[in-house]
Design a protein around this nucleic acid. Structure first.
Lengths: 194, 194
DNA sequence: GTTTTTGTTGATTGACGAGTCAATAAACTT
DNA sequence: AAGTTTATTGACTCGTCAATCAACAAAAAC
């Protein structure tokens, strides 16, 4: 019973299903059929809309990055002053929307994907670049010349916490995770002041 | 021309080849034939010695972890006092033996493997546990009650730096990478003292 | 010197999965 | 009403790959 205007709905469902399945299985070895099934359609239809599995993966990645970006932007809008902005970025990185089992699992796999698929690598670079520049804007007034290295370190901590979370079992604790990064930030700023 | 006593030689060659191939391809989607070819034998022989591809992966992982463990132990043996020990651990983590393109690439993929294969997960847990306890021994005299959180943070930084290195191109710079972690350590210790 | 163990491979099996196709049908267009 | 576009799927093709097998060869054991 073909209704018209299905494309965006189907695509959205597939993207969501892709993330869930990758998270569930814990690897990129998910079949298009699995994804399509979870999204409530045939694998042929999935191919019809995305053309290839790789396209699906990329769409899923874009979705996650968009979501994350929105979260950061939202938090930044409310923050006053450099330190508040830095805190906002960190907190947003571990907020309930992004720091979820499936999403964290997906991240890890996207990292792997980026090793092989240039398009995926580009996406990740965009994310890293934005994070970096956001951090730098906050850090320059506070850490001066050391801004660069602190930003680098902070980026690494955030990624590292994600990485470790993927291996843990049980629901992620955004609060605790954020504290690790916040703690890093604080100590770096204090040292600067002494 | 069957020479006797080949088993350990063949196995070692396969383990090495497994790491190289995983690093080269950038994913676990390497075929047994690829690995065997690089190791200079038929795929049948690889199966003969390891039984399954998964066994090969696990052996490769064990090899990397062993190598890393040896490097840390060696560095620790020479270190005097808590802070020196901490520095030794960090430096060893980014030493030339472990912090190499293929090895770093393999690490990332082993993380993914650990999501699916319980045995791999166990291996990674052992590594994480050892790292943690090593760090704690050094940290307790220096950071007291804060030892736990600093250890957690340091672990995350180290993993994060590895993760990011896997995405970069060009040869890894162990020195620079180590500095990120050392920097973290220093600032945490200084803060504690104020 | 025959039997057993160890090393080795080419060929084969069997499964699985990405992507294509042909067909069916409802909805819009003219 | 005929034609076109959009939605949808079951069945099929084609390739790939892990794992097994049968066979052959050299060394070791008896």
């Amino acid at each position: 019973m073909p209704k018209v205007g299905m494309e965006p709905i189907r695509k959205a469902a597939l993207v969501k299903a892709t993330i869930v399945e990758i998270g569930r299985v814990g690897s990129l070895d998910v079949t298009v059929s699995q994804i399509a099934k979870r999204a409530g359609m045939s694998s042929a239809l999935a191919h019809h809309y995305f053309g290839s599995k790789e396209e699906m993966f990329l769409a899923a990645m874009r979705h996650i990055l968009t979501l994350y970006g929105a979260e950061v932007r939202g938090a930044l809008a409310l923050a006053q002053g450099p330190e508040a902005r830095l805190r906002a970025i960190i907190t947003a990185s571990f907020s309930a929307g992004s720091f979820r089992r499936e999403v964290v699992g997906a991240w890890l796999n996207f990292w792997v994907l980026a090793q092989t698929v240039p398009q995926a690598r580009r996406l990740l670079r965009v994310y890293q670049g934005r994070l970096r520049s956001n951090l730098l804007t906050g850090l320059r007034p506070l850490a001066g010349a050391r801004a660069e290295e602190v930003a680098e370190g902070l980026g690494a901590v955030i990624d590292g916490v994600y990485l470790r979370e993927a291996l843990k079992s049980g629901a992620p604790e955004g609060k605790i995770a954020a504290d690790v990064a916040l703690n890093y930030l604080e100590s770096q700023l204090k040292v600067r002041l002494t």
